[in-house]
Design a binder for these strands. Structure first.
Lengths: 170, 170
DNA sequence: GAGAGCATGTAAATTGTTACATGATTGA
DNA sequence: TCAATCATGTAACAATTTACATGCTCTC
């Protein structure tokens, strides 16, 4: 999976600007993927050159002009190929778990703060994700796989929260 | 968190070679951090120059010579500073969830295979991690925070497995 | 008047992977 | 004899982040 595949997936539904794409990342799947504008804009130009997407300048009133990108038939083919590939191994990078791992080298106070803070952060992520799921589902904006995708995030967050809570209690 | 902090943590316990460090990554925390030799060796040289670690060449019989690295007092100070910093946000990058998210654009067969394979892969990771936890705990090689660290991995894997199983059944 | 949102883009720097190169020993 | 393990290192490349640059509109 590279960012190109993800952009093609988003454009499969309907045309988006670079700015829209970034918002989509944040709104729909910030919990398992993210990219910055510094990656998005150069990638869009590259994909245009490759013929996977096409650009159309759109004038707006009261707002800056924008470039709307549409997927081409080649882009669609490319994306279908991606979908049929087996999924790559998932990668987690957790500074919290690293701190915890070396916990015996720090004092109890530091460790207690670490756990409390991790719990708070994860609870916030849980609430955010649950709220998004509710809102999007209510207005029928979620397919069943998208719902499963978010629910998978939720059940894992929940398991984490329970475990950290029980560790803090003992 | 960068790889330097992680290396300092490992060297806090006892001296290691670059090769040992890589094995430690794999054995103890491959599920939340990893790095290749291409990163480890240049980093070790850099850290030596910075005075965080020192190098000692060791001759071995029947095996290639190796460089053993020891943490210096400056390195220890550096690591203590790391431990007291708040943990950075954790980052997950999941190609499986991306495939699932765009699932309605693929056929049922493809999606079914995706879920089956994700389930199999996660079950394997669960078994691996549980086995490691058992083995290391039995010989008293785990501190309580290290145990919690691994258990946190296990409960999240378990939640994932349950959810995917129930999705496959329905 | 400040800050947030909308909108695009570049440049520098960092970070990291993959592949290559070398070479001995051990076990199947 | 082949693959795996031990052991170190470089070089090319890929990916990505952060900071900078610009500028309008709307809300507080």
């Amino acid at each position: 999976m590279n960012i190109q595949d993800v952009i093609l997936g988003i454009l499969s539904e309907k045309p988006h600007s670079g700015y829209d794409i970034k918002r989509h990342f944040e709104e729909y799947f910030s919990f398992f993927f993210d990219a910055s504008f510094g990656t998005i804009y150069p990638t869009l130009s590259k994909m245009e050159k490759l013929g996977l997407i096409s650009r159309e300048a759109v004038r707006q009133e009261g707002k800056p002009d924008k470039n709307m990108f549409t997927i081409t038939p080649e882009g669609e083919q490319h994306f279908q190929k991606y979908l049929r590939q087996p999924a790559e191994k998932e990668v987690l990078r957790s500074d919290f778990l690293m701190h915890l791992y070396f916990g015996d080298m720090a004092d109890e106070e530091t460790m207690h703060t670490l756990l409390r803070e991790a719990l708070r952060a994860k609870q916030e992520m849980y609430d955010d994700l649950e709220h998004k799921l509710q809102e999007l589902d209510k207005i029928g904006k979620l397919t069943s796989s998208q719902k499963l995708c978010m629910e998978l995030g939720l059940v894992q967050y929940e398991a984490f929260i329970r475990k950290v809570q029980s560790a803090l209690e003992s």
